[in-house]
Design a binder for these strands. Structure first.
Lengths: 127, 127
DNA sequence: CTCCATACGGAATAATTTTTCGGTATACGA
DNA sequence: TCGTATACCGAAAAATTATTCCGTATGGAG
């Protein structure tokens, strides 16, 4: 586990919020779970733009923060299900609002970085 | 200027939103400007937890994205004023909402990282 | 001319996050 | 026992972001 050298101000709401969904794939994971994709292997299949390892790591942080809860079923095959906690649910509308804002204003950023096509995709919107 | 090796999906609203205020000091800068702190030197005095250079860099990105507009007065002493564009203004309520969410839920994160006191502060709330 | 306040920027380094690669473990069925 | 599907994790490498250090330029004051 990586140990920070520069301390964070965990009394700042923004800092806290960013720890919870500021990472690259966390919004994507939260969104997927909110859409009913519960099992790790399903999430791995759903989010193909990054590796399973990355999903697992960010997911375990979300569990640690109490955003996602994890339920282990000891049947066969080995089965784990993730779901959003109440707190986790409360992020979803904010995430949607962020997404809306970004979609509305993406022209601002796009004018600047309009060189090459995109390889990875972590879009929340799944048509 | 740093050139990315991994492309971003600039059609994803979240990605766009994060480019605009996902960086470490951007929320702080936007907040300060929205509170009427306009000049670079004022911002440097206001935000002491990072160096002027960092503020300048993140500020210039905000200008580039059209979130902040820059006005140069050629009097003496040399004077520059930043202000939020209309788009920039439209972020402020979202930022406040993020901050509120974080404040409400900071206990989740704090239980985990409660080792040492904080050195830096980038809190949006200035009592 | 020198000094000061303002504003900005290059470039190296440090810190952090993301990615890759490979491994462990469990329980079942053939 | 061996193979398979599930789920997870350590550690190094790569990529990205933040920080530090130091330099430039302008225009007025002394």
């Amino acid at each position: 586990m990586y140990e920070r050298k520069i301390k964070e101000d965990l009394d700042c709401g923004i800092v806290v919020a960013m720890k919870v969904f500021g990472a690259k794939w966390k919004p994507c994971i939260i969104d997927a779970i909110s859409r009913g994709i519960k099992r790790p292997s399903e999430l791995h299949r759903e989010i193909t733009s990054t590796s399973p390892r990355v999903i697992d790591m960010q997911l375990s942080e979300l569990v640690e923060y109490g955003i996602v809860s994890k339920k282990v079923y000891s049947g066969f095959p080995l089965c784990v299900e993730y779901s959003l906690t109440e707190t986790g649910e409360s992020i979803v509308p904010i995430l949607m609002q962020l997404n809306q804002w970004g979609l509305k204003n993406k022209g601002l950023v796009k004018k600047i970085n309009d060189d090459e096509p995109v390889e990875t995709s972590r879009c929340l919107i799944h048509a």
